[in-house]
Amino acid sequence: MPKKDILVLQDLLLSNAQAAAAIRAELEGRGILAVNLMSSPGAGKTSLLERIAERTAGGLKIAVIEGDIETERDAERIRAKGVPAWQITTGGACHLEAKMVGRVLPSVPPETEILFIENVGNLVCPAGYDLGERLRIVLLSAPEGDDKPKKYPQAFATAQTLVLTKADLFPHLPFDPAKAKAEALELNPKLEVFITSAVTGEGLDELVAHLRRKREEILGRA
């Protein structure tokens, strides 16, 4: 039987990379900043989005894609704030892929300024998948511990923004925000770091201002 070597040299995630590039081009053409939110389950992604929705009501136009393994719960929480939201249930998959996001894009209203994509709660796999976002935000909550950045380096190394959440719990836990920040900055010296609390409202104005600046950069590019 003749044997043949076939040289391929193809990225195994090529189809995801192509879908992500198409999403980025479409959204930026429409003047929409796409934000990929990543964290462990329960770090406060949905609560943070609820607070952002309250603070930007009547001003900034936001929309949210929610990724979870099961249930519509998170999308319902966002819709209750008057913000358009779509739930993607992955049925077991541990991360969102660009094609899943692409299917939602036709529903995103034209006036949208920021599209948040809340990834499946997981600090590992989502980091390997480009969803076509311009801004990747990783959240680390106080109860998780300040030693997490180096344990899950890819998530912190590929993000541009870090949000330390649940600041209202700092006094009650052995969590040192300065240590968490220093560890993350060692991995990724360009990270911009914010500290927030969805309970007291600490840091939310600064984070919203940061998001507005990032959105303006998109307009400058288009």
Binding site: M1, P2, D5, L9, Q10, D11, L13
Partner: peptide
Amino acid sequence: ELVLQKIEAETE
């Protein structure tokens, strides 16, 4: 990298 470099196959 996460690349398919090459394949070895039996052909007709």
